[in-house]
Amino acid sequence: MATEDSEYWRWKEYNWKDPEMDWKDAEFITAGVDVGSVSSQAVITLDSKLFAYSNMRTGSNSPDSARNAMNWALEDTGLDLEKIQYVVGTGYGRVNVPFADRAITEIACHGRGANYMYGPTVRTVLDMGGQDCKAIRTDEKGKVTAFLMNDKCAAGTGRGMEVFADLLGIHIEKVGEESFKVEKEPPAVSSTCVVFAKSEATGLLRAGWPKNKVLAAYCSAMAHRVVTLLERLGVEKEFAITGGIAKNSGVVKRIEKELGLTALDVNLDTQIAGALGGALFAEALAKKAQKQG
């Protein structure tokens, strides 16, 4: 039987709300729900300000995941779904958000969300999601000016990192710091395909590599892979990373080193960027609908 302790891939799910804010003072209450391949988030904004959010794993049923994330974000806020004027669905499961007024691509939402989180100086956003990654260029309003989707498979993403955490027995939230506990940076694993990299890593472990070194080799491979993606699109300052991998210093610092650029830091959950962008678009769309009567 697997116990909680042995599930190294399991990251913490949680919800948050701003205790200083009261929805009763707000004119526009809108929400964004990002149903991703691995995680789902719901964000509620009051007049374009972040009010509450939740972040949890996506289950096998997208509509249920959307509902659960929304309900959890609403918890203890005194709000209910009926009071939310406009809901935008985004992410892989965006068409499966039953209560959404509109579905918007995650590329548009991440651009808009990163603009709020990191400020209007952000020009390049790298969204490192659960099962894919995207390089996005935006203008000062968060509007997408160029984008590039990832390659064919799930390599270089959150799911791959979960597989490695599990293989090496290192908790996913500690992967970053553990990957720096090496005497010398090892060469990157040659394959970024999760399945091939896993067999390569198993080989390295059998050859006597300590697990931190294997982890370092995988983090470098992942960093190198996304840097190639970014370089094809062109990187302009300021640069920011959204998504779950943005919390993994082992990958982030290696990307920064290879790019020669520092990623912007933020005191918000980097996984909510998509849902937050959705909520902000929801407000803009609600206003537009009101104007048109």
């Binding site: 997408v144 000016t145 160029a146 989707m149 390659d151 064919k152 993606l229 094809r232």
Partner: peptide, 16 residues
């Protein structure tokens, strides 16, 4: 907006 659709694999880069 420059919208890039495609992928890169071992044989090259394929983007529209």
């Amino acid at each position: 907006m420059q919208a890039n659709y495609g992928y890169r694999d071992g044989s090259g880069e394929y983007y529209i």
